[in-house]
Simulated assay, not measured.
Amino acid sequence: MRGEPRLFHLLAQAHRAVVQRAERESVAQLGVTPTQLALLYALEGEAGVAMTTVARLLELSPAALSGLADRCEAAGLVTRRPSASDGRAIELVATPHGRDLREKSYPLLSDLNARLVEGLDTTEQVAAAKFLTGLIDRFGKSRGD
């Protein structure tokens, strides 16, 4: 093991650093967390999205999504409504405030993405994306977990 790259450790450190920076900047600039923004992105372009679909998209348990939806609803970002096609299902809909906040978040997201690849040329950016996508493919839930 000695002499091998410490990729697992470096990946964990990088993840923490990026997530903490995104959290600080998102809260400071927009007053919401990246997770709350992810919910708003999941509702983009939709009149309403079933909570089960949102949970799958965000890879959250139903209980975790329910708590997130509660917080977003209390902040005036989303509303819940019964599904028109399935009376037992509940849909989430972005409010005008939520849609406005989502639009305001794009420059922040663009800036964070630019900083992720700062100092990398196009070939290195492609290699980094290939590496990360490969990790998701090899270790992600899509492999039957």
Rank of each mutant, 00 (worst) to 15 (best):
E59I: 12
E59K: 12
L60D: 04
L60A: 07
L60W: 00
L60G: 04
L60R: 08
S61G: 11
P62N: 14
P62S: 06
A63R: 14
A63E: 04
A63D: 01
A63H: 06
A64C: 09
L65M: 10
L65F: 03
S66C: 08
L68V: 03
A69C: 15
A69H: 09
A69R: 13
D70S: 14
D70G: 09
R71L: 09
R71E: 09
R71N: 12
R71K: 15
C72H: 07
C72N: 12
C72I: 12
E73Q: 12
E73S: 13
E73W: 09
E73R: 11
E73Y: 11
A74M: 03
A74N: 07
A74G: 14
A75H: 02
A75P: 03
A75M: 03
A75I: 00
G76W: 00
G76L: 05
G76E: 07
G76Q: 07
G76A: 05
G76T: 03
G76P: 06
L77E: 01
L77V: 08
L77Q: 01
L77P: 01
V78P: 06
T79N: 04
T79M: 04
R80W: 06
R80L: 07
R80G: 00
P82V: 13
P82Y: 11
P82A: 07
P82Q: 13
S83C: 06
A84Q: 15
S85H: 01
S85D: 09
S85R: 08
S85I: 08
S85F: 10
D86G: 06
G87Q: 09
G87C: 06
G87H: 03
G87D: 01
R88E: 13
R88D: 10
R88Q: 08
A89L: 10
A89V: 06
I90C: 14
I90R: 14
E91D: 11
L92R: 11
L92A: 08
L92S: 03
V93D: 04
A94W: 01
T95V: 06
T95Q: 12
T95E: 10
T95F: 07
P96F: 04
H97C: 02
G98D: 15
G98V: 10
R99Q: 10
D100K: 02
D100V: 05
D100A: 05
L101K: 00
L101M: 08
L101S: 02
R102G: 00
R102S: 03
R102T: 02
E103I: 05
E103F: 11
E103L: 13
K104T: 06
K104D: 06
K104C: 13
